[in-house]
Design a protein around this nucleic acid. Structure first.
Length: 747
DNA sequence: AGCACGCCGACT
DNA sequence: GTCGGCGTGCTC
């Protein structure tokens, strides 16, 4: 049982000295440190989590043992304060994965390991459940027996007749309306026996359903090709399936095959909140499904982690961090919607869940399956280079037709100065949809259209004082807000620059809501964005109301583009497909394409065919044109050469360094110095170094930011060179430097 | 991330 | 001569 091994006091100095351990602390430092191992503690092992005093104030921090050395006489070393486990949480494979992540993503090892092992695990007793067993014959039951007690016994007898020995005390109380006292009395009279046993994943499960329908022709072909790869050995396969083509069904069959071999699978999903439908389906179809995500309580996380580590979980479902699930026999990793940006963590360690999944699969000699309707350019390039295989699901399930897309130019309306975001065509289609009793989803790209506080006479715009970004006006609070630092400001009475009258310009999602209410007073609509969806409960509520038809129109940001599956949705409206108004970013086209295709896929999942209206300022934009034709490969054939020509990812690999400081000069100097040092260290290497240049957003939270972009031809080569000397590389630079390998955006 | 150390300006 | 601001570097 994992206890807490603690040195109650400093061991006497004359006792035999214990071993010395080298640890990696969970702090942003580049060195490792030696500590004395106390004699009261279990023998040290590599990978054990410990707590150590660190720094002059003696504050304690988590650390991981990386090396064990013989005792030394030198008593200047501090003692390890405590050790939380007798055996390390990470097996050899995960340990090696951690070392790779630290090196590849230029992150201190202690921070990587801390991100791999949730701090809450392994520190409590396993969950238990009390089970009541019948230990008497009906004939032996005393004549004088209270009605409640009798009800309990009857309940157990009933269960026995159905072949079930033993019921949990909880369940027994619910079914027979008995109190805890009633049950303990029966136990004292030895009519029943109460046994305590550990809770396992089986206890959380209902009956497993059999397959609801057969795979279609495409799915069968994909699964047949996939099958031999599931027998073991590393392989990477892309499942390129159009929206609604039934990728999840293929996942389920593949996972089941892996389970049959006595191995475990990991299914990564972009965001657990969006995966509730998928998760519910998996729970119905597969045994012993474990989950790992941030919404779990410490006790729940500990329980699932323990089940996984014991090999009792057959599948682990979760967001990017679930790639670290301690499965003893990993047989398959699936990355669903592999193109999703949420797989990249935006704080250290800045790893990409998909790329870590591929690396883990290769260490585990297991297959990895990457599913998407719109694979990332990174993945597609690997397919073209023959590194990954590609299986296609070109048709939707049940022969559903692909939704029809139609482009509407917004420009005409804008030029006339008419500020209406729901254009004529869109209005007609919504009305038509509502008349037929069907549902609509409207996607609002917040970045493109927000409410700015603006002076028409001098063109002054309200901007955040700490960041270099325009503030966005929120109707609900009547305050302007900065979307980078959440600073708020009240609306000025007059323009601070010229004293003129100020105006709210553009349209936030709230304004669209107003426009909808005006145009469709009878329709019931709901809004889904990060402002209204602050808790998982709210999310669930909108989900249910939309599913049951309580809501006619669902209006939302990117959130509504993913994973929703509602058969009565026949219209999807993209209010503005343009991301070109957003921050300059080499992935803007790719995102526009993905978003348009993904949201279009929400339409026509039932019997009625789907229609999609795409409003845009740039109807000729290739990303939009290809999306309308459902032409992924066409898009890729246009986008990849464009990246190649400029030397951008995925044709080259990017490492982005950001120097930040509240003094703009120091930030810039820091970036310049870093750039110069990189050029020196890497001279003769096949790298391009761009910058220093201002980051996409020059100032965030009062800190100026300058970036240096490094492009390398081969992944990881530069990191291997920089990692051992990273501390030295940064020494003397007063700006704070952060490294982001394979960045998703250059903001 | 904290926290100490040291260098420089302003003061008793 | 001394106090305290902040910039720089270290934490076994």
């Amino acid at each position: 049982m994992p206890g807490l091994f603690q040195e109650s006091q400093a061991p006497e100095p004359h006792g035999s000295p214990g071993p010395v351990v080298r640890v990696a602390v969970n702090v942003n430092v580049w060195g490792q440190y030696d500590y004395l191992w106390g004699p009261q503690m279990p023998p040290p092992q590599r990978g054990m989590r410990v707590k150590v005093p660190f720094g002059p104030s003696g504050r304690t921090t988590w650390a991981f043992v990386t090396q064990i050395d013989p005792p030394v006489g030198n008593h200047k070393l501090k003692y390890v304060l405590q050790c939380v486990e007798e055996t390390p949480q990470l097996d050899d494979q995960l340990w090696r994965l951690g070392l790779w992540i630290a090196r590849y993503y230029l992150t201190p090892l202690g921070m990587v390991l801390a991100a791999m092992v949730p701090s809450a695990v392994g520190q409590r007793e396993p969950r238990t459940r009390k089970i009541a067993y019948l230990r008497s014959q009906k004939a032996d039951w005393p004549g004088k027996l209270g009605s409640k007690q009798r009800a309990v016994l009857d309940e157990l007898l009933q269960a026995r007749k159905q072949g079930v020995e033993g019921l949990s005390v909880e369940q027994l109380r619910d079914n027979s309306q008995a109190g805890a006292d009633t049950i303990s009395r029966l136990a004292r009279r030895e009519l029943i026996e109460i046994k305590t046993r550990k809770v396992t994943l089986e206890d959380l499960h209902e009956q497993i359903e059999s397959d609801p329908f057969d795979l279609n022709e495409d799915q069968v072909r994909a699964f047949e090709e996939l099958k031999p790869r599931l027998d073991g050995g590393f392989s990477a396969t892309v499942l390129h399936g159009v929206t609604g083509s039934g990728k999840t069904e293929v996942y389920i069959r593949a996972i089941r095959k892996v389970i049959d071999q006595g191995k475990q699978a990991i299914l990564l999903v972009p965001e657990i909140a969006l995966a509730t439908q998928t998760l519910a389906r998996l729970l119905r179809r597969l045994p012993r499904v474990a989950v790992l995500h941030s919404g779990l309580t410490d006790a729940e996380r500990d329980f699932h982690w323990r089940q996984i580590r014991q090999g009792n979980a057959s599948v682990v479902v979760g967001p990017r961090s679930a790639v670290f699930a301690p499965t003893p026999k990993l047989g398959l990793i699936i990355v669903d919607e592999e193109h999703e940006g949420s797989y990249k963590q935006d704080t250290a360690p800045r790893y990409h869940g998909r790329d870590v999944a591929v690396m883990r699969a290769s260490l585990a000699k297991a297959p990895v399956l990457l599913g998407s309707a719109t694979p990332s350019m990174e993945t597609w390039r690997n397919v073209q280079a023959g590194r990954y295989d590609c299986l296609k699901l070109a048709r939707r399930v049940r022969s559903l037709p692909m939704p029809k897309l139609e482009v509407v130019s917004l420009r005409g309306e804008m030029e006339r100065g008419k500020i209406e975001l729901i254009g004529r065509t869109m209005t007609q289609r919504i009305a038509h949809t509502l008349e037929k009793g069907q549902q609509a989803i409207l996607l609002m790209n917040r970045r493109g259209y927000a409410s700015y506080v603006f002076c028409p006479s001098c063109e002054w715009t309200l901007a955040c004082e700490d960041c270099t970004r325009t503030m966005v006006f929120h109707q609900a609070t009547q305050l302007a807000m900065c979307h980078y630092c959440n600073r708020t400001a009240s609306l000025p009475d007059a323009c601070p620059a010229c004293g003129g009258k100020i105006l709210l310009f553009g349209m936030g999602i709230q304004r669209i809501e107003g426009e909808l209410a005006r145009k469709f007073p009878m329709a019931r609509s709901a809004r889904m964005d990060s402002d209204t969806m602050t808790t998982p409960g709210q999310f669930q509520k909108v989900f249910e109301d939309f599913g049951s038809g309580e809501i006619d129109i669902l209006l939302g940001t990117q959130m509504v583009a993913k994973g929703l599956d509602f058969p009565k949705v026949t219209l999807v409206g993209v209010l503005s497909a343009d991301t070109s108004l957003a921050i300059p970013d080499f992935r803007a086209s790719e995102r526009t394409f993905q978003l348009t295709v993904q949201v279009a896929g929400r339409a026509g999942r039932g019997d009625a065919p789907g229609n999609v209206i795409v409003q845009t300022l740039h109807p000729q934009e290739p990303s939009i044109r290809f999306a309308i034709e459902h032409d992924y490969e066409g898009f890729a054939a246009w986008e990849l050469p464009a990246r190649e020509e400029v030397g951008l990812p995925p044709c080259k690999r990017m490492i982005r360094f950001v120097a930040r400081h509240r003094d703009g000069n120091k930030a810039q100097e820091g970036a310049a110095e870093l750039s110069a040092r990189l050029r020196t260290i890497l001279s003769g290497q096949n790298v391009d170094i761009w910058g220093p240049q201002p980051a996409g957003v020059l100032k965030i939270r009062g800190q100026f930011r300058f970036q240096v972009l490094l492009l390398e031809a081969e992944a990881g080569v530069v990191q291997s060179r920089l990692y051992p000397q990273f501390a030295r590389l940064l020494r003397g630079i007063s700006a704070e430097i952060l490294a982001d390998v394979d960045p998703m955006a250059l903001i």
